[in-house]
Nucleic acid binder design. Structure first.
Length: 253
DNA sequence: GCGACAG
DNA sequence: ATCTTGTCGC
Protein backbone atom coordinates (compact mmCIF):
# COMPACT_ATOMS: atom_id res chain seq x y z
CA UNK A 1 0.00 0.00 0.00
CA UNK A 2 2.02 2.99 -1.22
CA UNK A 3 1.30 6.32 0.39
CA UNK A 4 0.38 8.29 -2.69
CA UNK A 5 1.56 11.55 -1.15
CA UNK A 6 5.13 10.24 -1.11
CA UNK A 7 5.10 9.90 -4.87
CA UNK A 8 4.18 13.46 -5.54
CA UNK A 9 6.71 15.40 -7.48
CA UNK A 10 4.80 18.59 -6.93
CA UNK A 11 2.19 19.60 -4.40
CA UNK A 12 -1.14 20.67 -5.89
CA UNK A 13 -0.29 24.26 -4.95
CA UNK A 14 3.04 24.13 -6.76
CA UNK A 15 1.49 22.42 -9.77
CA UNK A 16 -1.08 25.19 -10.06
CA UNK A 17 1.61 27.84 -9.71
CA UNK A 18 3.57 26.16 -12.51
CA UNK A 19 0.49 26.12 -14.73
CA UNK A 20 0.02 29.84 -14.14
CA UNK A 21 3.59 30.54 -15.17
CA UNK A 22 3.39 28.37 -18.28
CA UNK A 23 -0.04 29.44 -19.58
CA UNK A 24 1.20 32.76 -21.05
CA UNK A 25 3.68 30.82 -23.19
CA UNK A 26 1.00 28.84 -25.00
CA UNK A 27 0.74 30.09 -28.58
CA UNK A 28 -2.82 30.36 -29.83
CA UNK A 29 -1.97 31.28 -33.40
CA UNK A 30 -0.98 28.92 -36.19
CA UNK A 31 2.68 28.02 -36.32
CA UNK A 32 2.69 24.79 -38.26
CA UNK A 33 5.09 23.74 -40.92
CA UNK A 34 4.15 21.40 -43.70
CA UNK A 35 2.23 18.51 -42.18
CA UNK A 36 3.10 15.03 -43.39
CA UNK A 37 3.10 13.08 -40.13
CA UNK A 38 0.38 13.25 -37.49
CA UNK A 39 0.53 11.77 -33.98
CA UNK A 40 -2.14 10.52 -31.60
CA UNK A 41 -1.44 10.29 -27.87
CA UNK A 42 -3.31 8.62 -25.04
CA UNK A 43 -2.59 7.20 -21.60
CA UNK A 44 -3.94 4.11 -19.87
CA UNK A 45 -3.32 2.42 -16.51
CA UNK A 46 -2.56 -1.06 -15.21
CA UNK A 47 -2.16 -2.70 -11.80
CA UNK A 48 -4.98 -0.72 -10.28
CA UNK A 49 -3.32 2.47 -11.45
CA UNK A 50 0.19 1.79 -10.23
CA UNK A 51 1.55 1.56 -13.77
CA UNK A 52 1.03 4.23 -16.40
CA UNK A 53 0.94 3.15 -20.02
CA UNK A 54 1.52 5.81 -22.69
CA UNK A 55 0.72 5.14 -26.33
CA UNK A 56 1.79 7.23 -29.31
CA UNK A 57 0.80 6.44 -32.89
CA UNK A 58 2.27 8.15 -35.93
CA UNK A 59 0.11 8.40 -39.05
CA UNK A 60 0.93 9.53 -42.57
CA UNK A 61 -1.02 12.49 -43.90
CA UNK A 62 -3.31 12.48 -45.80
CA UNK A 63 -3.62 8.69 -45.93
CA UNK A 64 -4.04 8.42 -42.16
CA UNK A 65 -2.25 5.10 -42.32
CA UNK A 66 -0.36 4.22 -39.11
CA UNK A 67 3.39 4.12 -39.68
CA UNK A 68 4.72 3.71 -36.13
CA UNK A 69 3.40 2.72 -32.71
CA UNK A 70 5.05 3.08 -29.31
CA UNK A 71 3.80 1.80 -25.95
CA UNK A 72 5.78 2.98 -22.96
CA UNK A 73 5.22 1.93 -19.35
CA UNK A 74 6.45 3.45 -16.10
CA UNK A 75 5.37 3.77 -12.46
CA UNK A 76 2.53 6.19 -11.82
CA UNK A 77 3.73 9.24 -9.88
CA UNK A 78 0.61 11.22 -9.14
CA UNK A 79 -3.07 10.62 -8.44
CA UNK A 80 -5.74 12.03 -10.69
CA UNK A 81 -6.90 15.49 -9.73
CA UNK A 82 -9.22 17.43 -12.06
CA UNK A 83 -7.23 20.33 -13.49
CA UNK A 84 -3.86 18.70 -12.82
CA UNK A 85 -4.10 15.81 -15.25
CA UNK A 86 -0.98 16.77 -17.18
CA UNK A 87 1.29 16.12 -14.20
CA UNK A 88 -0.01 12.56 -14.01
CA UNK A 89 0.15 11.75 -17.72
CA UNK A 90 2.93 13.78 -19.31
CA UNK A 91 5.95 11.96 -17.80
CA UNK A 92 4.91 8.70 -19.46
CA UNK A 93 3.99 10.47 -22.69
CA UNK A 94 7.48 11.96 -22.88
CA UNK A 95 8.96 8.51 -22.42
CA UNK A 96 6.99 7.30 -25.42
CA UNK A 97 8.00 10.28 -27.55
CA UNK A 98 11.68 9.66 -26.83
CA UNK A 99 11.39 6.25 -28.44
CA UNK A 100 9.86 7.51 -31.69
CA UNK A 101 12.06 7.32 -34.75
CA UNK A 102 10.97 10.80 -35.80
CA UNK A 103 9.02 13.83 -34.62
CA UNK A 104 5.46 14.37 -35.88
CA UNK A 105 4.33 17.68 -37.39
CA UNK A 106 1.04 17.86 -35.46
CA UNK A 107 -0.09 16.03 -32.32
CA UNK A 108 -3.60 15.14 -31.22
CA UNK A 109 -3.97 14.48 -27.50
CA UNK A 110 -6.78 12.83 -25.55
CA UNK A 111 -7.84 15.60 -23.15
CA UNK A 112 -8.25 19.37 -23.07
CA UNK A 113 -6.04 22.02 -24.65
CA UNK A 114 -6.81 25.56 -23.48
CA UNK A 115 -10.33 24.50 -22.42
CA UNK A 116 -8.99 24.40 -18.88
CA UNK A 117 -9.43 26.62 -15.77
CA UNK A 118 -5.93 28.05 -16.21
CA UNK A 119 -5.82 27.49 -19.98
CA UNK A 120 -3.21 24.76 -19.67
CA UNK A 121 -4.79 21.39 -20.28
CA UNK A 122 -2.66 18.33 -20.98
CA UNK A 123 -2.55 19.04 -24.74
CA UNK A 124 -1.23 22.57 -24.20
CA UNK A 125 1.24 21.45 -21.57
CA UNK A 126 2.60 18.65 -23.75
CA UNK A 127 2.79 20.98 -26.74
CA UNK A 128 4.86 23.49 -24.76
CA UNK A 129 7.18 20.79 -23.52
CA UNK A 130 7.75 19.26 -26.94
CA UNK A 131 7.53 22.58 -28.77
CA UNK A 132 5.11 21.04 -31.25
CA UNK A 133 1.65 22.03 -32.52
CA UNK A 134 -0.99 20.16 -30.48
CA UNK A 135 -4.75 19.80 -30.36
CA UNK A 136 -6.85 18.55 -27.44
CA UNK A 137 -9.73 16.17 -28.12
CA UNK A 138 -11.75 15.45 -24.97
CA UNK A 139 -14.79 13.32 -24.41
CA UNK A 140 -15.99 15.27 -21.39
CA UNK A 141 -16.10 18.94 -20.41
CA UNK A 142 -13.84 20.33 -17.70
CA UNK A 143 -15.06 23.93 -17.71
CA UNK A 144 -17.00 26.41 -19.84
CA UNK A 145 -20.53 26.49 -21.26
CA UNK A 146 -22.15 25.87 -24.62
CA UNK A 147 -25.51 25.77 -26.31
CA UNK A 148 -27.06 22.78 -27.97
CA UNK A 149 -24.99 21.07 -30.63
CA UNK A 150 -26.69 20.33 -33.97
CA UNK A 151 -27.24 16.63 -34.58
CA UNK A 152 -25.60 16.43 -37.98
CA UNK A 153 -22.11 15.01 -38.25
CA UNK A 154 -19.54 17.78 -38.67
CA UNK A 155 -21.65 20.46 -36.99
CA UNK A 156 -20.28 22.28 -33.95
CA UNK A 157 -20.86 24.99 -31.33
CA UNK A 158 -18.45 27.19 -29.42
CA UNK A 159 -17.42 26.32 -25.89
CA UNK A 160 -16.93 29.58 -23.97
CA UNK A 161 -15.82 30.57 -20.50
CA UNK A 162 -15.62 33.67 -18.34
CA UNK A 163 -12.47 35.61 -19.04
CA UNK A 164 -9.56 34.81 -16.76
CA UNK A 165 -6.17 36.28 -15.95
CA UNK A 166 -4.61 33.52 -17.99
CA UNK A 167 -6.33 34.66 -21.18
CA UNK A 168 -4.26 36.82 -23.55
CA UNK A 169 -5.63 40.27 -24.43
CA UNK A 170 -6.22 39.29 -28.03
CA UNK A 171 -8.12 36.15 -27.10
CA UNK A 172 -11.04 35.39 -29.35
CA UNK A 173 -14.25 36.64 -27.65
CA UNK A 174 -17.93 36.46 -28.45
CA UNK A 175 -20.57 39.19 -28.12
CA UNK A 176 -20.99 38.79 -24.36
CA UNK A 177 -17.31 39.24 -23.70
CA UNK A 178 -16.84 35.57 -22.95
CA UNK A 179 -13.74 33.85 -24.25
CA UNK A 180 -13.84 31.02 -26.75
CA UNK A 181 -11.88 28.10 -25.32
CA UNK A 182 -12.96 25.30 -27.63
CA UNK A 183 -15.68 23.78 -29.77
CA UNK A 184 -18.24 21.05 -29.19
CA UNK A 185 -18.00 18.94 -32.34
CA UNK A 186 -20.60 16.39 -33.39
CA UNK A 187 -18.05 13.96 -34.79
CA UNK A 188 -20.71 11.35 -35.36
CA UNK A 189 -24.48 11.40 -35.56
CA UNK A 190 -26.31 10.28 -32.48
CA UNK A 191 -23.19 10.38 -30.32
CA UNK A 192 -22.13 12.86 -27.65
CA UNK A 193 -20.02 15.63 -29.15
CA UNK A 194 -16.26 15.73 -28.56
CA UNK A 195 -14.54 18.85 -27.29
CA UNK A 196 -11.88 20.27 -29.60
CA UNK A 197 -9.57 22.87 -28.11
CA UNK A 198 -6.25 24.27 -29.32
CA UNK A 199 -3.24 22.91 -27.48
CA UNK A 200 -0.20 24.89 -28.62
CA UNK A 201 0.92 26.69 -31.82
CA UNK A 202 -2.50 26.34 -33.45
CA UNK A 203 -5.67 28.44 -33.76
CA UNK A 204 -9.16 27.33 -32.83
CA UNK A 205 -10.34 27.22 -36.44
CA UNK A 206 -7.32 25.34 -37.72
CA UNK A 207 -7.59 22.84 -34.87
CA UNK A 208 -11.21 22.20 -35.79
CA UNK A 209 -10.30 21.81 -39.47
CA UNK A 210 -7.68 19.19 -38.70
CA UNK A 211 -9.89 17.17 -36.42
CA UNK A 212 -12.73 17.15 -38.93
CA UNK A 213 -10.30 16.14 -41.66
CA UNK A 214 -9.25 13.14 -39.57
CA UNK A 215 -12.75 11.89 -38.81
CA UNK A 216 -13.73 8.43 -39.94
CA UNK A 217 -17.08 6.99 -39.05
CA UNK A 218 -16.18 6.67 -35.39
CA UNK A 219 -16.54 9.22 -32.62
CA UNK A 220 -12.84 9.96 -32.27
CA UNK A 221 -10.53 11.26 -35.01
CA UNK A 222 -8.18 8.58 -36.35
CA UNK A 223 -4.98 9.60 -34.49
CA UNK A 224 -6.65 9.61 -31.08
CA UNK A 225 -8.75 6.57 -31.86
CA UNK A 226 -5.70 4.45 -32.62
CA UNK A 227 -3.76 5.74 -29.61
CA UNK A 228 -6.81 5.03 -27.47
CA UNK A 229 -6.93 1.40 -28.55
CA UNK A 230 -3.25 0.91 -27.85
CA UNK A 231 -3.30 2.60 -24.47
CA UNK A 232 -6.31 0.74 -23.16
CA UNK A 233 -5.27 -2.80 -24.09
CA UNK A 234 -8.13 -3.04 -26.54
CA UNK A 235 -7.73 -3.78 -30.28
CA UNK A 236 -5.20 -6.47 -29.43
CA UNK A 237 -7.58 -9.07 -30.77
CA UNK A 238 -7.26 -7.76 -34.33
CA UNK A 239 -3.50 -7.33 -34.49
CA UNK A 240 -3.28 -9.53 -37.60
CA UNK A 241 -6.62 -8.92 -39.26
CA UNK A 242 -6.09 -5.49 -40.81
CA UNK A 243 -9.64 -5.68 -42.10
CA UNK A 244 -11.03 -4.19 -38.92
CA UNK A 245 -8.33 -1.53 -38.82
CA UNK A 246 -9.33 0.66 -41.72
CA UNK A 247 -13.03 0.17 -41.18
CA UNK A 248 -13.45 3.62 -39.72
CA UNK A 249 -11.86 5.36 -42.69
CA UNK A 250 -13.84 4.25 -45.69
CA UNK A 251 -16.72 6.64 -45.87
CA UNK A 252 -15.35 10.07 -45.09
CA UNK A 253 -15.41 13.18 -47.31
C1' DG B 1 -21.39 28.58 0.73
C1' DC B 2 -22.92 25.13 -3.06
C1' DG B 3 -21.91 22.55 -7.19
C1' DA B 4 -18.64 20.92 -10.94
C1' DC B 5 -14.87 18.30 -11.79
C1' DA B 6 -10.36 16.14 -18.58
C1' DG B 7 -8.33 10.95 -17.72
C1' DA C 1 -8.86 5.79 -16.22
C1' DT C 2 -10.63 0.83 -14.70
C1' DC C 3 -13.81 -3.26 -13.31
C1' DT C 4 -17.14 -6.00 -17.21
C1' DT C 5 -21.82 -9.35 -20.97
C1' DG C 6 -24.84 -8.88 -23.50
C1' DT C 7 -27.39 -6.04 -26.37
C1' DC C 8 -29.57 -2.32 -29.28
C1' DG C 9 -28.96 -0.10 -33.74
C1' DC C 10 -26.89 1.56 -38.32
Amino acid sequence: MPDTLHDWTLSPEDAIALQRSLAPRVERRDRLGEVSVLAGVDIGFEDEGETTRAAVVLLAWPDLVPIEEIVHREPTRMPYIPGLLSFREIPAALGAFERLSRRPDLVMVDGQGIAHPRRLGVASHLGLWLDLPTIGIAKKRLCGRHGEVPEERGEWTWLTDRRRKEDPDDAQQNEEGRVVIGAMLRSRQGVKPVIVSPGHRISQVTALDWVIACLGRTKLPEPTRLADRLASRRGRRFRDASSQDTLGLDERA
